[in-house]
Design a protein around this nucleic acid. Structure first.
Lengths: 139, 139
DNA sequence: CCAGCTAGCTCACCTTTAGTAAGTAGCTTT
DNA sequence: AAAGCTACTTACTAAAGGTGAGCTAGCTGG
């Protein structure tokens, strides 16, 4: 098993103070890796999108939350906001170079969940089954 | 600039349906990568911890949220919960093999934020300065 | 000339989730 | 008998998020 090796590598990479509440990188991570923030960036990996395209692509997001999260990402310098002064105006969002560099680790994380979703589902089912047996045994 | 290359690599790795609201991996990612879930796993990378140790280590978390998130992670099969029936009882939490494999991409993401926190802080400051100038110009 | 259409938001209202503080169990030490 | 320890719950409150309606501004069809 290579588990311990991976753990050691991960440990050395880990920023020492991410667990400290006053750490700036933790505050920024909280702002960016929200429920919708990661999905918006994931959608923009495929290329620039307009507001309504993102609204359709990021399934389930409300316009309010899309607008709010885009503002945060633009302010953080991860996303560009380009307005074409046509009528009605066309607003296009795209990743900045910094946003692109974030896309790599973020995509690996998403990829991990794609690979391990079924494993987690099984673990959850097993856990629930065991809990059910225990509560049944108590009666 | 290698931005486009990174983007292409990221695009191919990206699970096709993470943006779909019915996708199971998205539901699971929502459960695990919460504000505290990532930090708890990050803390456990360094080795097993007891409840009170985690409470001290993950700065700012309440006992309620620690308990709740640990339950979720245990149910997902990412964290082990071992009870020593001493008095008072000692409960030790540690990463499962699946938890260890998640630690790798998660650590890379945390590492990215460690590297780019200052860049984002600058971008935010620049963005706010520009907004201030614009609103000043309007008067 | 003016109602209607469009994209990209913004606002008011309500529900769900997270945070705070206090309480609980069972046993030990003082 | 009183206080403390660990690992939690529970009740209450604050913040985040969801829903649906409305707004802007100019162009187009009637």
């Amino acid at each position: 098993m290579t588990g311990d090796d991976e753990l050691a590598v991960a440990g050395t990479l880990l920023a020492a103070d991410i667990l400290d509440r006053t750490c700036t990188s933790r505050a920024i991570m909280d702002q960016v890796t929200t429920r919708w923030g990661t999905l918006i960036i994931a959608a923009l990996i495929k290329g620039p999108h307009r507001f309504s395209q993102l609204h359709a692509r990021v399934d389930g997001i409300s316009q309010k939350m899309l607008s709010h999260n885009l503002k945060t990402l633009v302010r953080a310098g991860l996303v560009n906001r380009d307005v074409e002064p046509t009528v009605p105006p066309q607003v296009t969002y795209s990743l900045t170079p910094m946003g692109v560099s974030l896309a790599t680790p973020l995509t690996q994380l998403i990829h991990w969940f794609g690979q391990n979703a079924s494993g987690i589902l099984e673990a959850q089912a097993g856990h629930d089954r065991q809990a059910g047996e225990l509560s049944a045994a108590r009666h």
